Simulated scan of single mutants.
Amino acid sequence: MSLRCIIIDDEPNAVNLLEVLIGQTTQWQLLGKCYNALEAMDFLKKHTVDFIFLDINMPHLTGMELAGLLPKETKIVFTTAYAEHAADSYAFKTIDYLLKPITLKRFLAATQKIEEAFGNVVAVNEKPEGKADEGYFFVKSGKMLRKILLDEVLYFEGEKEYVRMVTGIEELLIYRRLKDIEEQLSAPFVRVHNSYIVNTRLLSKVQDNHIYIGDKQIPVSDKFREVFMAVIRQRMF
Rank of each mutant, 00 (worst) to 15 (best):
Q112W: 05
Q112K: 14
Q112E: 14
Q112H: 12
K113C: 04
K113Q: 08
I114Y: 09
I114G: 07
E115M: 04
E116V: 06
A117G: 01
A117V: 11
A117E: 15
A117I: 11
A117S: 15
F118K: 02
G119V: 10
G119D: 07
G119W: 07
G119S: 09
G119C: 04
N120I: 10
N120Q: 10
N120H: 13
N120M: 02
V121Q: 05
V122G: 04
V122K: 13
A123I: 05
A123E: 13
A123D: 14
A123M: 07
A123K: 14
V124M: 03
V124T: 14
N125P: 01
N125K: 08
N125S: 11
N125V: 01
E126H: 12
K127H: 09
K127A: 11
K127C: 04
K127T: 15
P128R: 05
P128H: 01
E129C: 03
E129I: 11
E129D: 11
E129T: 13
G130Q: 03
G130V: 11
G130F: 10
K131I: 15
K131A: 15
K131Q: 13
K131C: 15
A132T: 03
D133L: 07
D133K: 08
E134L: 02
E134I: 02
E134F: 04
E134S: 00
G135S: 00
G135F: 00
G135A: 01
Y136C: 02
Y136R: 02
F137R: 00
F138Q: 05
V139N: 10
V139F: 07
V139W: 00
V139Y: 10
V139Q: 11
K140W: 02
K140S: 11
K140P: 06
S141Q: 12
S141A: 12
S141Y: 11
S141N: 13
S141G: 05
G142I: 08
K143H: 12
K143F: 02
K143Y: 11
K143C: 02
K143P: 03
M144T: 14
M144Y: 12
L145R: 09
L145A: 06
L145M: 14
R146V: 14
R146L: 14
R146G: 03
K147T: 06
K147R: 12
K147N: 06
